[in-house]
Amino acid sequence: MIGKKIIETEAIPSARVKEILDDFSQDNELNYEQNLTLNHLARFKKFSAEDSEEIMEKLQEEHPNLRTRAIVHIVDLVPQDLADLRLIFAKEPYQPDKGEMEQILEILEQYDIVE
């Protein structure tokens, strides 16, 4: 990456990354890393891009202490129970209590997973 500089970074859900790569591949040939990323994203269950954005907005509104990065992990990993959710928050500075984590799981249950 000689001569390249990162201008800004932003955490986005994997459904959005897949959408971006699909759009890019319509007009361009994907390089090796982009192909690997697209194949990886196609294998795992996730929410649609629209649902991902909606879930992220709900989580940010209802839980303002959560960092965007943690919210993206929640949307991408689709935790099924409190144990899965605790793993996501293991290294986060903010640790939600059990009630907050149950609310997060309830929000996720309202949406259908795309296979």
Rank of each mutant, 00 (worst) to 15 (best):
R43H: 11
S25L: 08
A49R: 02
Q103N: 12
E106C: 08
Q103L: 09
A42N: 07
E92C: 02
E19S: 12
I71H: 03
N35M: 11
N28E: 11
S25Y: 09
V78L: 07
P13T: 10
P13Q: 05
V75C: 07
T37G: 04
E115N: 03
Q103A: 13
E62N: 09
F47E: 05
D112V: 03
Q80E: 03
E109N: 01
I12A: 01
H63D: 02
D22V: 08
I55A: 04
L21P: 03
N35R: 15
S25H: 11
Q26I: 15
I2S: 02
M56R: 11
E50M: 05
E57K: 15
G99P: 01
A70I: 04
P96A: 14
I7K: 08
L41P: 03
K91M: 05
I55W: 08
M56C: 12
E8H: 10
D84Y: 03
A15M: 14
A11W: 11
M56Y: 12
L87I: 00
M1S: 06
A11M: 10
E109G: 13
A49L: 06
K58Y: 07
Q80Y: 00
E19I: 04
I107T: 05
E57P: 06
D23N: 15
N31C: 00
D81Q: 06
E10A: 07
L77M: 05
D27S: 13
Q95N: 13
D81K: 05
P64N: 13
T9C: 11
G99I: 03
I6L: 11
A90P: 00
A11P: 14
R67M: 14
L108T: 07
A90K: 01
A70M: 08
I88H: 01
E115Q: 03
T37Y: 04
Q60W: 07
V75N: 06
K4T: 12
L21I: 09
I104M: 10
D112S: 04
F44E: 06
N28C: 10
Q110E: 04
K58R: 15
I74N: 03
T68N: 08
A11I: 13
D97A: 06
D23R: 14
N39I: 14
I55D: 08
E10P: 06
K98F: 09
M1V: 04
L41E: 02
A70K: 06
E92L: 12
P64I: 13
Q103K: 11
N39C: 04
M101N: 00
D84H: 04
K46R: 08
A90I: 02
P64T: 13
G3S: 05
